[in-house]
């Protein structure tokens, strides 16, 4: 072995996607359990990235770089997880709701969820309720993460939840809502299961929902 596995941890923290990809590739070629890479190195690295973000040591560029490094590794690991029936902590469908094209907040949450061991299906922006319904069914999602930046698009969150109810899948998923204008009262009002005001606490709560201790 010409590398140390803790370099994987370091490469995610520093956002070095080439190194994270190379180490993962080599480790898998040597038969190292892919879940060991995820659980012992990549998830702790993203936990540390989240801590630094919360402490204002990392900002958006650094977080996006770390997420990119982690994704470079996960691109190699995910096919093996599927091949050997290894389950992620949970499956999340994420998107910015209909009428809203702002995506930086949603991207940060999706990146941190992926770093936390979730499989994330990012539907992008301006996502219609029926697209969320279809994605939940297709991916058998445990959680749906809805984002909005504008007060004018917040009603789309309720329309999406209503669409889940109409489709008979409301009880199958936990609905998380977030974004600058969203708050707990609004979440309660529209019948969402959770509101969180930052990506790190969203991941912690998502893990709780999946019965994983944080």
């Amino acid at each position: 072995m010409s590398y140390e596995l803790n370099q994987l941890y370091d490469s995610v923290i520093t956002g070095d996607n080439k190194t994270s990809h190379a180490i993962t590739e080599q480790a898998l070629a040597e038969g190292i359990d892919p879940m060991k890479l995820v659980n012992d190195h990549m998830m702790p690295a993203m936990d540390e990235v989240g801590r630094r973000f919360e402490m204002n040591e990392y900002y958006v560029p650094e977080l996006l770089l770390s997420a990119r490094a982690m994704k470079a590794s996960m691109a190699l690991i995910r096919p093996l997880m599927i091949q050997f029936d290894m389950e992620p902590i949970g499956r999340v469908v994420a998107g910015t709701v209909k009428g809203d094209l702002h995506d930086i907040g949603k991207n940060l949450v999706a990146a941190m969820l992926e770093g936390g061991g979730f499989e994330v299906f990012d539907l992008g922006t301006d996502v219609a309720p029926e697209q969320f319904v279809e994605a939940v069914r297709e991916h058998n999602a445990d959680i749906v993460a809805l984002s909005a930046l504008l007060t004018t698009t917040m009603p789309s969150m309720k329309l999406t939840i209503d669409a889940f109810t109409a489709a008979g899948i409301r009880d199958q998923v936990k609905v998380f809502v977030g974004g600058a204008p969203v708050n707990q009262e609004f979440a309660d009002e529209i019948g969402a299961d959770a509101y969180r005001d930052n990506a790190v606490s969203a991941v912690a709560h998502a893990k709780q929902c999946m019965g994983v201790s944080t």
């Binding site: 956002g15 958006v60 996006l64 770089l65």
Partner: peptide, 11 residues
């Protein structure tokens, strides 16, 4: 694009 330029401040 916000995501692109954020990354490019570093890359």
């Amino acid at each position: 694009g916000i995501n692109e330029i954020m990354l490019e401040t570093v890359t």
